[in-house]
Write a protein that binds this DNA or RNA. Structure first.
Lengths: 213, 213
DNA sequence: ATCTTTTTAGCACGAACGTGCTTGAACCGT
DNA sequence: ACGGTTCAAGCACGTTCGTGCTAAAAAGAT
């Protein structure tokens, strides 16, 4: 069956992306519970029916938005990890690249802050809402994979002991999420400088680990 | 003016506490956004009007619930810290007491899990809702105080360098909150055992810090 | 028994929500 | 010019929410 009549071509994917970014802005400024169809439509400069034309339901819009932010974050991490891999271990550029990688988790600028807000909001919402479960699991796997590879590269022993390696990966992951949380919830206390200090302190403890134990 | 007619005595504080615990159960199982007056009243076995008799508004109910959970957590921390202080530094009982203290943050049993859920939900909601701001700030101060004192006692140098001390306090705080988050959001991955491993690993890095740097 | 106050319960209103459905408007191949 | 398809917009219904308000039930002091 051929498409005989090619109708009005409005780049549908671009429109969807605009709506998604309206969702992001609303979540960042007013929280996930305010991301209703009416609010999103207003923010995107559209009518409710128009948004519903691109997203069958509210759930689909939210799940897709979650997936988009996860892809964005995972993409940044992969990109930054490639830089880390390309540099020689122990060099100052390497250390800087590692800090840059870890900084992708934190709300250090406007764009990162929005993503961090949205990411946190969705992950917490996924605890309750089954529709978000799959994307949340994918998010966790993607981030854990990058952090795991990073720890494997950074640990002195090369990660001989498997158990120790996952513990250190979980430890770095927890510190990152905790830092992100505090930076979002207590921005006065948790400034970018404090974040950097905490991260460098953590990295010191990672490289200078007691080999035995 | 004397109270001539002392009417029906129902200890109001106990009733309020019952309502608050209904709020906790709802937040833990269905999330904060489901903690409406009608849901809370149902959960507490009361009518909406009855709940509204003890709490003037929905906001007051939520703010009070937040304050109660903060007090509960802060109380547990103070109690556990007193035990830590009473033991000799470096002893095995001391180490165990420190782990017990830090475990108060994590959802290691039913009661702790409910509190952790509620605490997280309110703290994140406080980013948006101004009514929760004050209690959130109090919560942060109380917890940071205990963790700060703990770090001061645990660090080898006795915390000579002020700057290093606050960095380590923030680092421990971040790790704790991150662990709590992961234990709530990915309970399959982040088991109690992994939590314990991560915490002991962190404590090792805290005691075995390079003195200079 | 009566009176006063607390306690409990319920109604009604406006606002916001998701969603099924309908109605024009825009657009392109014929 | 026309017809088929997509896009944009809006209405209407049922649900849930907070809240102001009213009113019945409960209980101790008189």
């Amino acid at each position: 069956m051929l498409k005989r009549f090619v109708p009005k071509i409005v780049d549908a994917e671009a429109r969807r992306q605009e709506v998604v970014e309206a969702v992001f802005r609303i979540i960042a400024s007013d929280g996930l519970e305010r991301a209703s169809l009416r609010e999103v439509a207003d923010e995107a400069g559209l009518a409710v029916g128009s948004v519903r034309h691109y997203f069958a339901s509210s759930d689909e819009l939210l799940v897709h938005s979650f997936a988009v932010v996860v892809d964005r974050i995972a993409g940044r991490l992969e990109e930054a990890f490639a830089v880390v891999e390309s540099l020689e271990t122990g060099s100052t550029e390497h250390d800087a690249a590692v800090l840059t990688l870890l900084g992708q988790f934190l709300p250090l600028d406007e764009e990162l802050a929005v993503d961090a807000c949205v990411w946190m909001a969705f992950r917490h919402a996924a605890r309750i809402r089954p529709v978000l479960e799959q994307v949340a699991a994918r998010s966790h796997r993607a981030v854990a994979a990058v952090v795991g590879r990073l720890v494997m590269q950074l640990m002195p022993d090369g990660g001989s002991v498997q158990e120790r390696l996952v513990t250190e990966a979980e430890r770095l992951l927890a510190t990152l999420d905790g830092l992100c949380m505090h930076a979002l919830l207590q921005p006065e206390w948790m400034t970018a400088e404090v974040c950097r200090d905490v991260l460098t302190a953590h990295l010191d403890t990672l490289v200078a680990l007691p080999s035995n134990r």
